[in-house]
Every structure is written in structure tokens, then in C-alpha cells.
Design a protein around this nucleic acid. Structure first.
Length: 302
DNA sequence: ATGGTACCCTGAGAGC
DNA sequence: TGCTCTCAGGGTACCA
């Protein structure tokens, strides 16, 4: 399901609901998601107050008072639904719920896949639903963010200053792997997935099968195409966040709303359709790279 | 080191 | 209606 813009949208939905609130009860309806949940998962959360909600790559980070962090990866089908607190417990979350729309527990999801239910002291409920169970949660001890096995080794944040043409060129220098696989590698750039890699390469006019090394000169200096690619990666992610992400099948934000960015896809999901680049008469093709579909126009991506 | 494939799990949609 | 097949936004493990 979710790439960086979708996770960012979820984080922005969770932040006003969770920030400053305490967990009253955490109910695990099964002992594992993709991986077993940590020992004493519920016990370590109950009674704790949320300091803030943030994002690193595709991880949601719920920072707790005392420094521990609840990290959640949504996998392909993970989603959170928020149920507003009861009227008698009206508080900030209540107001936020009203603002975001009509919260119900329906949201079209199948309750058989409600795996973790967080109840807050103000009565709000947060339900984690994940049909395919590729998502996971972990609790990271205070100060352990940098050394956590899930988070250590992640590459740069694409929307931050660390993603530059110089950085990409340095990492790509000498690599024969396809540009597509290179950009999908979370150790290089953290947070891109299949949709936004396809879209960024389209916008930059770059062939997904180009060897990654072609982003750099022989001495490792960034070429113009690296500059262009960086600009397009940032642009497509920022636009997608503004649109609330892309909804293809089942992605929804915490209020059950679909994203709108799929309407702005130039390549992804458009196999057989006309290329949308001005003046290009090509057709969008789909080929498999690394076991995943790549959508691109062979006429204008070179 | 790198590339390719299989796999994790379930649901949706297409085609017959 | 119901079966079978393919595919899916995530990532990892294993093999050549």
C-alpha cells in the first residue's frame, strides 16, 4: 500500500489524535504481524503518554514520554482507523475527529484483520488493520533509534537536504544495477516505492533500465540527469503529500478518506495508454524489474 | 557484490 | 455463481 506520501498522510492524521494523550489499553488480537510483537508490548505502552508522532522513511514513529518509540511499518495493506472519543470525554481528539469527517468503524475494512486496538484515556480508539500482515510494529528503547535493526542502514530522506545530485551520483558511481532497482533500494533513498519511482523517472525522462552509474561521470560527479532526477523525486513526493497520497486499491488515511494523487499519475498503472508528455506519441509499457512492474514510455524515457 | 527468484499473506478482479 | 489465474503500494532470504 503505502509509500512515503501515504505514510506522511497517516502521520499527519495520527498526530492530533495521539499527541499528549495516554494509552489506556492495548489489545493484541494475535501475537504477531509480519514478525512477533515485542515482549510485553501492551504492558510497555499502557499508561504512557505520546510526545509526538513523526515519520522516518516508511515508518511511523510514535515518540513516548521517556524516550521510547513505537515504530510501525504498514507493509502493503496496513492501515489505522480512528474512532472518536465518547462525547462525555470530549477533548482535542474529539474536535479533530469532527474536523476530519465522520469517523465510524466501518471504513470498508474487514474486522477479521483488526489486529491491534489502542484505546486512549480520552476514549478515542485507534485500530490497526492489516489483511496481508506484511506490516509490523516494534518498540525501540530510549536512544535506540539509530541502532534499531529496522531503521539503521536506511538511506537519506528524499525530502530533506541530504538527497542531492551529488549524493545520488556518489552512491551510483560504478553500479551496474538498473536505475529503477537503485532508486527502490531503501539503503540509498528511504521511502520511495514502486509508484513514485516510476513517476519520478517518467518526469525526469529517464529510462528505468539505464545503469545507475550513468547518473555520474567517471569521476563520480553528478550529471545533469541526476540533478533532474532529484528535482523530480522531491516534486512528485511533495505533490502527492498535498493530494493525500495515492489510493489504488485500499489505501485510506486515518479518517477513511482515499488519496487523490492517483489521478496525477503519468506512468504508473497506465499500461497501453498514450504517453502524457507533451509532444510524445509513445505508449506506456509495463515490464517486470526485480519482480515488480515498471511503467514507462520507451519513446521519451532515455 | 549483484541479479534473479521465491516467498511471506490475503483479497480483488479478470476470464472462463 | 463459482472456479482458476494473475496481480498487488512492502521487504527478506537464498541461490547462482
Amino acid at each position: 500500500m503505502p509509500e512515503l506520501p501515504e505514510v506522511e498522510t497517516v502521520v499527519r492524521g495520527l498526530a492530533p489524535v495521539l499527541t499528549g494523550q495516554r494509552f489506556a489499553r492495548v489489545e493484541l488480537r494475535r501475537p504477531d504481524l509480519r514478525f512477533p510483537l515485542p515482549e510485553l508490548f501492551a504492558e510497555r505502552l499502557e499508561g504512557r503518554r505520546v510526545a509526538c508522532v513523526a515519520r522516518r522513511a516508511k515508518y511511523i514513529l510514535v515518540h513516548l514520554d521517556g524516550g521510547e518509540v513505537l515504530a510501525v511499518h504498514l507493509g502493503m495493506t496496513g492501515r489505522f482507523s480512528v474512532d472518536a472519543p465518547k462525547a462525555e470525554d470530549a477533548g482535542p481528539a474529539r474536535a479533530h475527529a469532527a474536523q476530519l469527517g465522520d469517523y465510524t468503524f466501518a471504513h470498508g475494512r474487514d474486522a477479521r484483520h483488526d489486529h491491534v486496538v489502542f484505546t486512549l484515556r480520552n476514549g478515542a480508539m485507534l485500530t490497526y488493520n492489516d489483511a496481508r500482515r506484511f506490516g509490523y510494529m516494534t518498540l525501540i528503547a530510549a536512544g535506540g533509534l539509530g541502532s534499531d535493526p529496522f531503521l539503521a542502514g536506511l538511506g537519506v530522506e528524499p525530502l530533506g537536504p541530504d538527497l542531492s545530485a551529488a549524493y545520488l551520483a556518489a552512491r551510483a558511481c560504478g553500479r551496474k544495477t538498473d536505475l529503477k532497482a537503485f532508486l527502490m533500494d531503501q539503503r540509498i533513498v528511504a521511502g520511495l516505492g514502486n509508484i513514485y519511482v516510476c513517476e519520478a523517472m517518467f518526469r525526469a525522462g529517464l529510462d528505468p533500465f539505464l545503469p545507475a552509474a550513468r547518473l555520474a561521470s567517471r569521476t563520480g560527479k553528478p550529471l545533469a540527469r541526476a540533478q533532474r532526477l532529484v528535482l523530480e523525486i522531491k516534486a512528485v513526493l511533495e505533490e502527492a503529500i498535498r493530494a493525500g497520497g495515492s489510493t489504488l486499491r485500499d489505501y485510506q488515511d486515518t479518517a477513511g478518506n482515499a488519496g487523490r494523487f492517483q489521478r496525477s499519475h503519468f506512468a504508473y498503472g497506465r499500461e497501453g495508454e498514450a504517453c502524457l508528455r507533451a509532444g510524445c506519441r509513445g505508449t506506456v509499457r509495463r515490464k517486470t524489474q526485480g519482480g515488480r512492474s515498471t511503467f514507462y514510455c520507451a519513446a521519451c524515457q532515455r
